[in-house]
Design a protein around this nucleic acid. Structure first.
Length: 223
DNA sequence: GCGACAG
DNA sequence: ATCTTGTCGC
């Protein structure tokens, strides 16, 4: 589908300017549930690198919901134009992600992104950034923590505890599989924390990572 | 000044 | 993220 998005080219941005953009866009993030009545497709978005990080490859895996069967996918490669800086990950990965999304016939109802949503120093991780640019529901699925603190997570699938920063709840630490490190879940845009957790669990079967993420990771890394 | 630090 | 074999535990 056609995506008309204006934004500065990452290679022209200084970290300070990138931070200013996050501060300007964060006000558009909405945490009220705003999804279609019926969600028929969910997608995983992930990025991989080639040629010593010179090439960024993004992949989108579209799954039917709730069967979680892969029904479509797309990918795109772009020259890597921004370094990896904690807190500014989206400026490195989003350009390729947008190119991959453009190749889809239809935008999936919900996008699960690798990384954080609002569980970010400025509450504007990659899932929120992508969600605001598209004004579309997104969830951040992080394998590790960027910011925030939390208590122990019961070792039972589906158990979760709030992720907190300065007295503010910014996400959830979720046990998607017994005996395995939990996932750091936070809303990107158009969902509440509780809903984000529910959707991630609904997309997870027998593995730590949701099926959406597993497919996207596979498509972004290999051939 | 000393740690922490998504992918 | 990426480089990579075997190995511990349910």
């Amino acid at each position: 589908m056609r995506l008309r998005l204006h934004h500065a080219h990452p290679w022209d941005l200084t970290p300070q300017e990138a931070i200013a953009i996050q501060q300007r866009l964060r006000r558009f993030v909405r945490l009220e549930d705003d999804l279609p009545e019926t969600v028929e497709t969910v997608a995983g978005v992930d990025v991989g690198f080639k040629n010593e990080n010179r090439i960024t490859r993004a992949a989108v895996a579209v799954l039917d919901f709730p069967s979680l069967q892969l029904i479509a996918h797309s990918s795109a490669e772009t020259p890597t134009a921004f370094p990896y800086i904690p807190g500014l990950l989206s400026f490195r990965e989003i350009p390729a992600v947008l190119r991959a999304l453009e190749k889809l016939a239809h935008l999936p109802a919900l996008l699960l992104c690798d990384g954080q949503g609002i569980a970010h120093p400025r509450r504007f991780g990659i899932a929120s950034h992508l969600g605001v640019l598209l004004d579309h529901p997104t969830i951040g699925v992080g394998k590790t923590r960027l910011i925030g603190h939390h208590g122990p997570v019961p070792d039972e699938k589906g158990a979760w505890v709030p992720l907190e920063d300065n007295g503010e709840i910014i996400g959830a630490v979720v046990r998607t599989r017994k005996g395995v490190k939990p996932l750091y879940i936070s809303p990107g845009h158009r969902l509440s924390i509780e809903s984000a957790v529910r959707w991630v669990l609904a997309c997870t079967t027998r593995y730590k990572l949701p099926e959406t993420t597993r497919w996207a990771h596979r498509l972004a890394s290999e051939g």
